[in-house]
Simulated scan of single mutants.
Amino acid sequence: MSNPTLDQAGDYWSTGIIDIHPGSIRVRGYPIQELIGAVSFPEMIWLMLNGERPSPHQARLLDAALVASVDHGPHAPSIAISRMAVSCGLPLNGAIASAVNTLDDVHGGAGEQSSELYLDIDRRMQAGASLAEATAAALDDFIAASGKFIPGFGHRFHPIDPRAGRLLALVEEAAAAGAVDGRFARIARSVEDVLEQRKGKRIPMNIDGATAVIYTELGFPPPLARGIFCLSRSVGILSHAWEQTARHERNKGPMPRQFPYRYTGPAERHLGDAP
């Protein structure tokens, strides 16, 4: 006779990801010892998220997106925070947690937002609009709801993001091989075209727009675009935090001490002063 309490607990914590018993670990049905040394880390990520192993082309595209996003220098807030956190005495795990927590809508959300935009354009095309019509209408709605900044296009530092072109080339190779459809790459290019028509200059796709192409081509829903980006950027965060430990700086601030901040408040005053 089954124990209702144990059955209810088992249902409450049920999972289709991993099955563990004494001496046995199976991930999505595969014994862990068969996976170790046989699949790459990107393949393992795919298996965990999708339940099946990826094709070689799918694994290559996911790997490329992960590699492209690992780091963008200490002026990236997440990287800077990891270094400051270590100097404040946090261990590596604390530094990683502090930094990853900044990967929100502004610093870290553009890939997810780009994916949502591409999917909106695709839905409009499925409803009968042309690529140009769907792109223009989706951009209008996005701007009305979220403002004029279009995630995934333009870059405050790079006139042309050196990562985007290579990622799109890999998507085109995979599309030529029939591994992906290629329509989201065409959609992203259409966004560039419409923005150029409206602004009178090319606004090139950046890393977020290009990785969003990969994630949508691979069938990942938009929230996973951010989640996978967090996995990738955690590598850079860890690297910078570890480097910082060797510098033995205490309470590393956002600026060197010889560059003071500017005070913009009232001049010195006292409680006894006349009002």
Rank of each mutant, 00 (worst) to 15 (best):
M125H: 00
G178F: 10
N93L: 12
R189H: 12
P22G: 10
S24Q: 14
E34T: 06
H155A: 07
P54Q: 02
P162T: 11
D120W: 00
I150D: 13
A212C: 04
L231I: 14
D273Q: 05
F153T: 03
I150E: 15
G147L: 07
F41A: 07
A110E: 02
K252P: 08
I228L: 08
R28N: 08
V180K: 05
L139P: 12
G108F: 11
S115R: 04
L139D: 08
G51A: 07
L47C: 10
G265C: 10
Q197G: 13
S115L: 04
T211A: 11
D140P: 00
M84V: 00
V67E: 04
R26S: 10
A225E: 11
R156N: 03
R28W: 14
F157P: 04
D122Y: 08
R26W: 03
G128Y: 09
A80G: 14
A99R: 02
L61D: 00
I237V: 15
A110K: 01
Q113E: 14
G152I: 03
I143H: 09
N251T: 05
G227P: 05
R163E: 08
M48L: 14
M205H: 13
D105M: 14
A132T: 13
D63P: 00
G219W: 09
K148V: 05
G29T: 07
R60T: 09
I79F: 02
D140S: 03
A99M: 04
I96V: 12
T102M: 10
D208R: 03
S239Q: 12
Y30D: 04
Q126G: 09
L131F: 04
L170A: 06
G253M: 08
I20D: 11
G23Y: 13
